[in-house]
Structure formats: C-alpha cells, structure tokens
Nucleic acid binder design. Structure first.
Length: 429
DNA sequence: CTATAACTCTCAA
DNA sequence: CTAACGTTGAGAGTTATAG
C-alpha cells in the first residue's frame, strides 16, 4: 500500500463561469449568480471579486452598487450547473478511477501510483484537458492528505504557491511549507469555520502552522476528535480516506423560501405537498422507505417588524413508506397542527428521516396484503412519466395549480446544454 | 447504571 | 410602490429516556 496522494480539483467561480461559457458577450464582464429566490450572491466572476463585492450579500442590498459597475446577475440555473459538473467529472475520471465527487464543483482524486516523478505535470494536464474540452478553468492542489490537498488548492487559487493553478505540497521542502503555512490564516483550513476560528485565535493559534504544531490531545480535550484529526491531517498523516461510493441518504430535505410572503393555509398545503413529492421521489430513487416525516414553517427571521413564528413537527409513521400520497397525508396533518393564522410565512420545508432500504421493509401487522405492491407500481409509473416527460408532468392534485408561492427566478439563463429549444436563441445572436 | 434515541451545534459547498 | 437575506446533508457531542 503506497502512501496516499490526494488531488483536489476545484472549478474556478463555477456558477459564474458556467453562465459566461454560453454567452461570449459576457467575456470580461463582471457576473454574479444569485441563490434560490434571487436571495443572496453565491458566485462571483473574477471581475466581481476584483471589485470587492463580497460573497453572501443579500441581492437587494448590493443591487445598486452592482448596477453602477455593470454587474450582470443570474438566477441559479442548477440544470445547467449539474450538467456541466457531470461533464467535468467525466473528464477527471480519465485521470484516476479513484475519484470522490465532493461537491458540484470539487472532486478528490487518489493519485497514489500515478506518475510519482511529476505530480505537478499530471495536475497541469488535468487542468489543460478540462479547459480544452469544456472551457472551464480548474485549480489543482496535491498533497498527502485531503485537508492538505484542500489547502494546496487554496494556495493555487490565491497564487500563494505553485504556478499556473497547480500547487503540489509533496514537492515542497519542509522549510518552504513552514513559511507558507505561517502566512495562511487558520480559518482557511477545511473544517475550521466561523465558530472555531475565533476560539483558536483566543488560544493564540492564528496561522495554519500554529494549528499544525499544536497539541492534538489538548485540542481533542477542548473541542472534539474532528479538530484532533485536522492537526494530524495537516502533519501529512491522513485520517480521511477517499469516499468513492456515495452512501444512501439518511435524511432527505426539501425546503424553499417563497417568492412572496404566504398567509393562507391553502398555499402552505400546496407548497408542503410539492416538497413531499420532491423528497419522496429522491427517496424512491435510492429505493428506500422513510419512517418519519417532519414539516417546518416559519416567518422571516430577518425583519424585526414582523411578528415571528416558527414551528417544526415530526411524526413517526406506523409503517415506513415511499408513497407520496401516504407521506403527504402525514405531512398535511402536521401542517394543520403547526399553522397559525395571521403570520406572513417566508419558508416551508419537509424532511424525511428514519430512512432504510426497501428490502428491509417491515409490514405492519394490520397492513392489507398486496396494497403495498400496487402502490409501489403506481409510484413507479409516476416517476417514469416524470423522468420521460419532465419534472412535474404528473403531480398530486394537492400541489395545486396556482403556485403563487413559487420562488423568484428573475434572471434565469436558458438550459443551454439540456434543452434543444434553447438552440435557436443561441444561433440568433 | 448503560445503551440508545433525540436533539443541538457546527461545518461545507 | 415597497420590501426584500439559500439549500441540503453529515458528524460529533450532549441530554433525555428506556430498561
């Protein structure tokens, strides 16, 4: 078993780059992509970063500034991003069969046993091929643990070390690494977030190097195993392995903010039903059953002038199920218990939990024989129709037809890569 | 008391 | 015109509860 070598490949400004890719007029133009409901800025092109517009800002707060700088905004187009993401993964898979898709724009590759004489050159060829085949730019961080590979990737992106978007820690001397790590904020480390960073600061640990050289036992005492593992990983002792098989979900959530505030129970019922159907579809997709359903509704947590209300209720089902109708009945009952009139609701969501494979089904003593099989085939047919003809082709009537609660998507780009209908528009310009 | 379930907090993209 | 601020999933630790 050779010492592991990890590469972390991360697409630059992924969402913004996807948008630019299909509209050459956007070359050199600052572009932002907004979260669902056009809420906050979640991706920025290089030009926007240069302007100093921060990540995570509510769009309405920065809109004027953005207009003045000629920033073009897009609503999240997940159909496009997911499709481009798959294409990137397909290219990366050519470089190593041991690949973990970590997020929509990041993958870990196990490079152990691959061209040990020049890992950086291998990284460059990855970057070149993704650029050539897809027009997207990636950075590659290479190191002996996943945490270090993430850090190396950070260095590549910020041009702190390495060249041309590639940073290989395994080729650096101990002294080089020391001085590099001394210059990087501890908060940049994977797993050191908003809460932990200030606590580490208070202990006098401000740099990556300081954390690497800290006492792991003491950190475990004070915090948890997670922090102890981070220290080991920073020292090049891998504690995390490549997770190449994605396990079944243990919980499935569907929740969304409304485009406009919602006041009436009927709209909430329709929204909750849609959420259940979306979650149940995912549940069936992994051939599982859910044993519990949770429904949450809330008013805006931001507006101090609005009366606040939030409620979240869970029920255990008498018999685990993946039937949209059964799950909906349970959810609507919970919603009825949660709903209070007179509030301006901002968001509703559902969670399916206590999830198990369908093959472990335990029929209740009182369930009618055969019913379940009929229901399953009905759901199968429904999924089949929706996968063939598009999401939402066949729906429960309880989802309604009004959709006044649907999210805002005022700046949506076409489904460039997944819908032929967009082709004429592309050619026309 | 222990084993486990339920809940809370944190993190990440 | 005004008001307007994402979603999903996991893991660890803590607390409550059952036996």
């Amino acid at each position: 078993m050779p010492a592991p070598i990890f590469a972390l490949v991360d697409c630059n400004n992924f969402y913004a780059s996807c948008e630019k890719l299909f509209d050459p007029r956007l070359a050199g133009v600052p572009v932002v992509v907004l979260s669902n409901n056009d809420g906050v800025v979640v991706a920025r092109s290089a030009e926007v970063k240069a302007l100093g517009l921060p990540m995570g800002q509510p769009w309405f707060k920065v809109r004027d500034l953005a207009k003045r700088h000629g920033i073009v905004a897009f609503s999240s187009n997940y159909t496009l991003y997911a499709d481009m993401s798959n294409r990137v993964v397909n290219v990366l898979a050519q470089f190593s069969p041991d690949l973990e898709v970590y997020s929509i724009d990041e993958s870990f590759l196990d490079l152990s046993g691959h061209v040990p004489e020049s890992l950086a050159a291998y990284g460059r060829s990855i970057r070149e091929r993704v650029r050539q085949w897809l027009g997207l730019t990636v950075c590659v961080g290479i190191a002996s643990s996943k945490t270090l590979a993430k850090l190396a990737n950070h260095c590549a992106k910020k041009n702190l070390a390495g060249t041309g978007g590639i940073c290989d820690f395994t080729a650096m001397s101990a002294a080089e690494l020391d001085s590099l790590m001394a210059r990087i904020e501890v908060g940049e480390i994977w797993g050191v977030g908003r809460q932990l960073a200030p606590k580490l600061h208070a202990m006098g640990i401000r740099s990556v190097k300081a954390l690497r050289d800290a006492d792991p036992g003491q950190l475990r005492q004070r915090f948890s195993v997670v922090q102890e593992r981070i220290v080991q990983e920073l020292r090049g002792i891998p504690c995390l392995s490549l997770e190449d098989v994605t396990p079944d979900r243990q919980q499935i959530i569907s929740s969304r903010s409304f485009g406009e505030r919602v006041h009436d129970l009927q709209s909430l019922q329709e929204a909750v039903t849609s959420h259940i159907c979306r979650a149940a579809e995912k549940l069936r997709n992994q051939d599982s059953l859910a044993g519990a359903v949770t429904v949450s509704i809330r008013t805006s947590p931001f507006n101090p002038n609005e009366p606040r209300y939030q409620k979240s209720l869970t029920v255990a089902l008498p018999e685990a199920s993946a039937d949209s109708r059964i799950l909906t009945r349970a959810a609507l009952k919970l919603l009825g218990q949660s709903y209070r009139q007179g509030y301006a609701y901002q968001k509703a969501g559902v969670m399916l939990s206590d999830i198990r494979p369908r093959r472990l089904r335990q029929p209740s003593l009182f369930s009618a024989i055969g019913n379940d099989e009929d229901n399953r085939r009905l759901m199968q047919t429904l999924d089949h129709i929706n996968s063939r003809w598009g999401r939402g082709t066949l729906r429960l009537a309880a989802e309604g037809t009004d959709f006044g609660w649907r999210m805002k998507r005022g700046h949506l780009s076409p489904a460039y890569t997944t819908n032929w209908e967009t082709l004429p528009r592309l050619i026309a310009r």
